[in-house]
Design a protein around this nucleic acid. Structure first.
Lengths: 344, 344
DNA sequence: TTGAAAGCGCTACCAT
DNA sequence: ATGGTAGCGCTTTCAA
């Protein structure tokens, strides 16, 4: 491979000028720069990442840790990753994914301390996440996607579950619904401290009580078949149910089927609103779902920006961000029976 | 951070001895080694990856490129990644994932040429994949997970679609089925040259014809709702259908539902066999599916081993590997009506 | 079994 | 606007 020295000789300039031309850290005349660029092109020069990293003490790499839970890597994560990668590149960084289970935080720390990455994005943060303590103790710059129970003082971006559930319930009550159920993630996810399971249910309950309505929530495995059972449970607990907020895509597939199997039309008899939803999920059912789309792309961008701020030690402390999911009208929500729009 | 020189001073040995103690490339007396290890522990020494990489001209990093198609990142991919990461580590390598769309092969090449990784694993390889040409031309060591149309001379590991579909059809004919449909991936996937769509259907057709049976295949979007339609199409084309081989998890969810909605019991009236299936999918439906589980973990291990062989230029040319999916009995296949086991 | 030292290919500071 | 050069923290050859 051609080195910077090779480029310098061919362009008849010093090595340092090539370096400066590349980094732009110091003015280089247009003519010289042109010669250098020509030389680089002719030699197929590609700067050596290791040499650059050793000299600058920065890898210009950001690592996204994904524990790959059983919940699977959803479309939201893909949006997130794509956006994070693009944002990182536009700032001169390279985003890589490190597959590490939650209990291997030490390995992550060692890699960063060893210089493989300048900072870390933590996905699927649990309410009580060991990785957070490990990274803090080691002084590794990191940003959480999600947040622990008490995230004060830690850099994070997350979904605003309070606003999301409030708006979900508001959407349905505006349509006249009063018997609104909530189909949550699995019991297992809650036991593992999966934050969305806890926060969304709390938000839903608050939104219901705020309106004097009775909350009715069920936990449900991430399987279509479990979604069918969950609907059965909800209808048994409240035969007058006219709407369901779901935060469990696999279960939602089964839920719509079970409703129809019972002769309940969606949305005429029962409305279904799927929240914290991946792109494309709306079209997966019949009728297409009304959803509240998780802000994956925005979180990716903001998370990377926050991490870079932390890595470069520039901005004092970028404030945390909470973004709600956005309502996208489909065909699975409609006015409650006896409540045509405007009459409530 | 503590450097190797710091460790050397504290252990009262030369820098090079520390290096050799760490790499094991040269004998070091037990006593010295013990002092060195003590010093490393006390200083919390972590070797600098950049310096090591610059000096040795190897990053000891392997990059897995995943284009993240719309098909989503399934459980199979997770098994694959976990296994690949473990295998890499056991060989002293670090596996990272690089999120790059198929058309950004140049970026991948430049990163490897720049020394960010020693070699590349290519996932979701299409029949005609530009990345293959780019990497070959640049002399970048790589191994395909999957294979192009004519993969001769390229290192790869893949699913054996011929054997998998042959065994799927064999399983069903052994149960007395003769009217066996095939529910494939989407038309779009085939247009994109997604190899499994093409190879599996070819294998299915061959397996049917080999038995003098009439093949009946449909392409189907990766959505439960599309799976329902697909079943309708299949039953219309062959009302005598008693079994379906599916290779489309999302569609399979809808397919079982549609069968039941039509009063066809699974497996009493129609058997469903889901092939190239992710772990956990079997339990997602009611009844649990009989599946042929994709060999994700085995492919991960073998792929990494092949790539390392290529990177280290040792073994001449590791032969390609084709592994079939493994049958896992569930409750969605049964003898064809009028064909109790043993009577065929 | 150990030590000394020459790079690896850059960045960034010192010059001019 | 440009050039010279001292490291960055290792690996590895050469010597002992």
């Amino acid at each position: 491979m051609a080195t910077m020295q090779d480029v310098a000789r061919r362009a008849q300039v010093s090595l340092s000028t090539v370096s400066y031309a590349l980094s732009g850290t110091r003015p280089v005349s247009a003519a010289t720069k042109a010669r250098i660029e020509a030389a680089m092109a002719e030699l197929g020069f590609q700067p050596n990442v290791m040499a650059r990293g050793l000299a600058s003490k920065r890898s210009r790499t950001l690592a996204l840790i994904f524990p790959a839970m059983e919940l699977g890597i959803s479309g939201t994560v893909q949006e997130f990753v794509a956006s994070a990668a693009t944002t990182a590149r536009s700032h001169g960084y390279h985003l890589v994914l490190w597959p590490f289970p939650r209990d291997e935080a030490d390995e992550v720390r060692d890699l960063v301390v060893g210089g493989m990455a300048d900072g870390v994005l933590l996905m699927e943060v649990c309410l009580d996440d060991v990785r957070v303590d490990t990274l803090r103790a080691a002084g590794v710059p990191f940003t959480m996607i999600g947040r622990t129970e008490d995230p004060d003082g830690i850099s994070y971006v997350d979904i605003d579950f309070d606003r999301t559930t409030e708006e979900a319930v508001a959407h349905l009550t505006a349509l006249g619904h009063e018997h609104i159920g909530f189909l949550n993630h699995s019991e297992r996810s809650r036991e593992e401290g999966y934050a969305p399971t806890v926060r969304a249910e709390a938000g839903y309950r608050a939104a219901m009580r705020r309106r004097g309505l009775e909350p009715l929530a069920v936990l449900c495995d991430e399987r279509p078949a479990a979604g069918r059972d969950a609907i059965a449970h909800l209808l048994q607990a409240d035969p007058g149910l006219t709407a369901v907020v779901t935060m469990n895509e696999m279960a939602t597939f089964g839920a719509t089927v079970e409703l129809q199997a019972r002769g309940l039309r969606v949305p005429d008899d029962v409305s279904v609103l799927s929240i914290v939803t991946s792109p494309g999920v709306a079209a997966m059912t019949n009728p297409p779902l009304t959803t509240m789309h998780a802000p994956g792309a925005a979180l990716g961008r903001l998370g990377v920006e926050r991490l870079i701020a932390a890595v470069e030690g520039t901005s004092p402390t970028a404030d945390p961000v909470l973004l709600p999911c956005l309502l996208e009208e489909g065909e699975s929500t409609a006015p409650a029976a006896g409540h045509p729009p405007g009459t409530h």
